[in-house]
């Protein structure tokens, strides 16, 4: 087991190196200047632009720029092109903003998907199953921003309450209870939208896992022994169907950065996705690269975690693991 862990950690470090080099080259070879070097600013003379370029090492060869980036990243002194702020501090603050949204959405996904999926599996082919199937596919098929706008329009026009941002402004001196609830409310709509796709996908998966297990012989045996339907479903089937889901916890991690640009943009949520988007617009290379790097770290950590969980849950796999990552 230890050898396996060491090996896979090493492999992932190598991957990380390659990922970071690739990301760095792609971004630096693309056209466009960082916005601080914005040549459209009539007040900025070519000499000033040259100075800024030099300060950002933009005229050094690519591998040197990569070395500077890595050095500064590791020493924590990496600065944003846009506002000269330390990149890691910026990312950390945004991470703290993204976290509640991510947690709330994940909680919704994992608590909703199981009952919905299990019921659909039990009533396979019935009206309930077909309805959830259609609803689930529809949720998967709706462009995120279309859904978000529909919901925002409906809520604001019907209930007349604000939904955008982390909180309602102008309430800073109100009662703390009101302010807390206000924050919760602002979390509800984006996380519901954020979660909708996840619930749809996961409940379908739960359903098919359940169906697969229900067909096994031991379930038939349990039924034959006269166990009640609930006992069969919740004790025998569910327990076995749950196994693969344990490993999916690991795969959740990268979702923190990746899948939220559009929702955060619409809801003015100052999270990681928006940080990345704003950085792309401003050509803020250090921020883009570092976010990408962190995403890669999270992905690798996630797959690592899920491999380990898999091995822990199902000892038979342990040997087979090395074949296929």
């Amino acid at each position: 087991m230890r050898a396996f862990i060491l090996r896979s950690v090493f492999q992932r470090l190598v991957l990380l190196l390659i990922v970071s080099i690739m990301a760095h080259s792609v971004i630096h070879l693309a056209p466009g200047e960082p916005s601080a070097v914005d040549p459209s600013n009539p007040r900025m003379k070519p000499e000033d632009i040259a100075k800024i370029r030099a300060a950002f090492h933009l005229d050094d060869p690519l591998y040197m720029q990569y070395a500077y980036w890595m050095r500064d990243l590791m020493s924590g002194e990496l600065k944003s092109f846009k506002d000269s702020q330390p990149v890691l501090g910026k990312i950390w603050r945004r991470f703290l903003n993204s976290l509640p949204l991510f947690l709330c959405a994940t909680l919704l996904v994992w608590t909703l998907a199981f009952p919905v999926g299990i019921q659909a599996a039990i009533r396979r082919g019935a009206v309930y199953d077909r309805t959830t199937t259609v609803v689930a596919y529809t949720l998967i098929s709706v462009p995120g921003f279309f859904l978000a706008y529909l919901v925002i329009l409906w809520v604001v026009n019907t209930f007349g309450v604000p939904v955008i941002g982390l909180k309602t402004f102008g309430m800073e001196h109100a009662d703390p209870l009101f302010r807390t609830m206000d924050r919760v409310w602002h979390l509800v709509i984006p996380s519901l939208i954020f979660a909708s796709g996840g619930v749809a996908v996961l409940s379908r998966y739960v359903r098919s896992q359940m169906l697969e297990v229900i067909g096994h012989d031991y379930v038939r045996t349990a039924r034959a022994k006269g166990a009640t339907e609930d006992t069969v479903i919740y004790r025998h089937v569910l327990r076995n169907a749950l196994l693969p889901f344990v490993t999916m916890f690991g795969l959740l991690l990268p979702g923190l950065i990746g899948g939220s640009v559009i929702v955060e943009q619409i809801f003015a949520w100052p999270g990681l996705g928006r940080l990345g988007y704003e950085a792309i617009l401003a050509r803020d290379f250090p921020v883009i690269l570092t976010l990408n790097f962190i995403a890669a770290v999270l992905t690798l950590a996630g797959t690592f975690l899920s491999d380990i969980l898999y091995a822990v849950v199902d000892p038979r796999i342990r040997t087979g693991l090395q074949g296929d990552a």
């Binding site: 990746g258 640009v261 792309i280």
Partner: peptide, 25 residues
Amino acid sequence: IMRLTDVMLCFPTFFLILTVVALLP
């Protein structure tokens, strides 16, 4: 090939697409 696949899977897909599309003409 499998390592290359792993490398590609490390990028957050939508973010990567956005970056490239924004930077390219």
